[in-house]
Design a protein around this nucleic acid. Structure first.
Lengths: 129, 129
DNA sequence: ATCCGTGCAAAGAATTTGCATACAT
DNA sequence: ATGTATGCAAATTCTTTGCACGGAT
């Protein structure tokens, strides 16, 4: 049975109010303002717990630490290859994509993950001058 | 300037002839048959070097170690959530997908990575009985 | 009273790196 | 001869985990 903890509430609240796709470390630093004694282990434990329950999203994309997202509505992410910023894309997720993939596949496909890469608005401006 | 090494050649050759999306460890174990003294560090160094040159693919998908692929032709991957097998999908990659994403995005999108998840043919059979 | 969550520190997994030597050019 | 590649081991990075204590139910 799940018990309330103020640390977990604070983490969840942070993710709900800061849609910056923070890493565990970033969450840790932020939460520390309110809970100076919180440990990184607790942050990881709660991020895992929340992600397992579907209350937040864990996003892995290849390089560097995982990111977390309070927005659990299906949406795609963009990662800037220059500054590593992660942004939400407005594009509608292609829900039919795994059905399409399943047509030529003998197993069962239940979901897909897509990440887009390139230069974020800020970095693409810098390169133009 | 890049110099020849038999270790690197062997790694490249292994990936070209074994399309099983091995991890660095798997490559290491295999190459060791021919080069008993090769070190894991050398395997990683060469996998990185080959991936940077575009001669092989590095595939990260969230859990566990990265996988490597000798097939550099654009194609999607499927990962079995039960046995962790990684398989190529026959489905044509949606090259227009980042153009589509770019329509509602202020930056520059140069590519996308999509992974499909579910049960591989073998595991989906087991579950049916 | 029970037992889940926490803080702390140590351990673990995956990968990278410094250094002296071996090898390709 | 020059400089890159290797083997080895230590270091790094990110994340998980064991344990004793504190807090929620």
């Amino acid at each position: 049975m799940l018990k309330y903890s103020k640390q977990r509430e604070s983490i969840k609240n942070y993710l709900d109010t800061h849609r910056i796709h923070p890493t565990a470390e970033t969450v840790y630093s932020a939460i520390r303002q309110d809970f100076p004694n919180i440990s990184l282990g607790t942050v990881y434990r709660n991020l895992n717990l929340l992600a397992d329950r579907g209350e937040i999203l864990r996003i892995s994309y290849g390089s560097g630490p995982d990111r977390y997202d309070g927005n659990t509505k299906p949406h795609y992410h963009f990662i800037c290859t220059s500054c590593d910023t992660m942004l939400d894309l407005k594009m509608e997720p292609l829900m039919h994509l795994h059905e399409l993939a399943e047509e030529t596949f003998e197993g069962i496909i239940t979901n897909h993950v897509t990440h887009f890469f390139g230069l974020c608005p800020e970095c693409s401006n810098k390169k133009n001058f």
